[in-house]
């Protein structure tokens, strides 16, 4: 939800393209975390093949953090799509450029959430 803002806060230099499978910028271990997130979403059990690599990079607690994040956002996306939650006004305005650049406006749910 706040990748750019949180990255700017610590000069991490995140690249928003990481959200759609592109470069992740300077987020530490961003490429591996993105690969884990993608695998975890497509086949949670198969994603465990990446566990050792993720632990080597960010520790066991980091692996659990990543898993927890994937899990909770799988609830959040279903809440948003099931209820048709309109994007909050401030977020709608703040993300216009990024949404266009990343192609998010073409998602089916955009028709529900742009308000």
């Amino acid at each position: 939800m706040l990748l750019r803002a949180s990255s700017n806060a610590i000069d991490a230099g995140a690249d928003l393209h990481g959200a759609v499978g592109g470069a992740t910028g300077n987020v530490a271990h961003g490429g591996l975390l993105m690969a884990y997130a993608e695998a975890a979403n497509r086949d949670p059990e198969a994603a465990r093949a990446l566990d050792d690599e993720v632990i080597a990079a960010v520790g066991e607690a980091g692996l659990v953090d990543a898993a927890v994040t994937v899990a909770v956002f799988n609830g959040l996306v279903r809440s948003a799509d099931g209820i048709g939650i309109p994007l909050d006004d401030t977020m709608l305005a703040a993300t216009a450029e990024a949404r266009a650049e990343l192609g998010l406006d073409s998602y089916a749910g955009a028709a529900n959430s742009r308000g």
């Binding site: 990748l3 995140a14 959200a19 759609v20 975890a40 979403n41 497509r42 956002f73 996306v77």
Partner: peptide
């Protein structure tokens, strides 16, 4: 937080969730 947000953003995108 950027690491968490990256995982969260990728999860939303894989699920094609606009919100």
């Amino acid at each position: 937080r950027p690491q968490v947000e990256l995982v969260a953003a990728r999860t939303s995108a894989v699920n094609e969730c606009f919100y």
